[in-house]
Design a protein around this nucleic acid. Structure first.
Lengths: 193, 193
DNA sequence: GGTTTTGTTGATTGACGAGTCAATTAACGA
DNA sequence: TCGTTAATTGACTCGTCAATCAACAAAACC
């Protein structure tokens, strides 16, 4: 019963199913059939639309990164001064959506994927750089010439605390982590230009 | 041609081969046969000594973590005051041995493994906690009651900057990262008890 | 009304992989 | 010297999986 215009629907369903499946497995060790089944279609159709497993993964990665970028943009839009914007970036990073099982698994596995696929690495670098320049731009009024260097530290701190939260044995607590980051930012600002 | 007492030799060879193979593949997607071949034996022997693939991985993880712990201990032994000891921990984390391809792949993949295997997660937590208490202990004379909280930040910063270095497009530069961490530590110390 | 395009799948292919096992070899101990 | 034990492997089982293909269905187009 082929309705036309299915392609975007199928693609979206497959991307979602891929992320969910990776989340359930905790690894990239998921089969095209599992993904297709979860998305309600045959594996042949998944191949038809994406060409192969690797491209399905890359699409899932693009989607995950795009969602994150959108969250950051949304948070930025509601902030009115540099400090608020920095705070928004930090809080977006530790928002509850980033602590959902599938999202955690996606990030960790995309780090691994970046080791194997140059395309995956490129995607990751693009988003990291975007985040860095967002931070640096808004830090400039606060710490002047040190902005770039401070942004590097803050960016690393966000990633590292996120990692520790999701790998820790306690349930992840984004608020405590965000508070840590903000504490360091205050210190850096107190240091002056 | 069975020489006796081969077990420890075989086990060590398999652990080494596992890490190398993971490094070459960039993922845990390596076969027992590949590992065994690299270690110069049949896959049946690998199964004989380790029982299964998962246990081979866990042994490789234990080894990686143990090497790291030994590096930290070595660096600590040469330091004489709290600040030097903290510096030693930081520099050990960014030592050149941690930027070898296999070691990078090992860490990233062990993060993923920690999602699937409670034993892997336990191992990771143990080492993270050890590092945390090392930091906190030596920070106490410098920042007093804030030691625990500062140690949390510094630990996260180390992990995060390491991640950014190894995932970045440039060649990894541990020195710059270590300098960033030390800069934050100085800020925290300047803040007083 | 017929042909092209789009959607869809079951069946198949060709390959690989984890784990088992029976059998072989050599050292060791009594 | 002979049974016991450690070391070792080739061959095999049973399962899986990515990718392909032939074929069918329905909409759109002319």
């Amino acid at each position: 019963m082929p309705k036309l215009g299915m392609e975007p629907i199928r693609r979206a369903a497959l991307v979602k199913a891929t992320i969910d499946e990776i989340g359930a497995a905790g690894s990239l060790d998921v089969t095209v059939s599992q993904i297709a089944k979860r998305a309600g279609m045959s594996s042949a159709l998944a191949h038809h639309y994406f060409g192969g497993k690797e491209q399905i993964f890359l699409a899932a990665m693009r989607h995950t990164l795009a969602v994150y970028a959108a969250e950051v943009r949304g948070a930025l839009a509601m902030a009115s001064d540099p400090f608020e914007r920095i705070e928004a970036i930090v809080r977006a990073g530790f928002g509850s959506s980033n602590f959902r099982r599938e999202v955690i698994a996606a990030w960790l596995n995309f780090y691994v994927l970046a080791q194997q696929s140059t395309e995956a690495r490129r995607l990751l670098n693009t988003y990291q750089k975007r985040l860095h320049s967002n931070l640096a731009y808004n830090l400039r009024p606060l710490v002047g010439g040190r902005a770039d260097s401070v942004a590097e530290r803050i960016g690393g701190l966000i990633d590292g605390l996120y990692l520790r939260e999701v790998l820790g044995d306690r349930t992840a607590n984004g608020n405590a982590a965000a508070a840590h980051v903000l504490a360091v930012i205050e210190l850096e600002i107190g240091q002056g230009q």
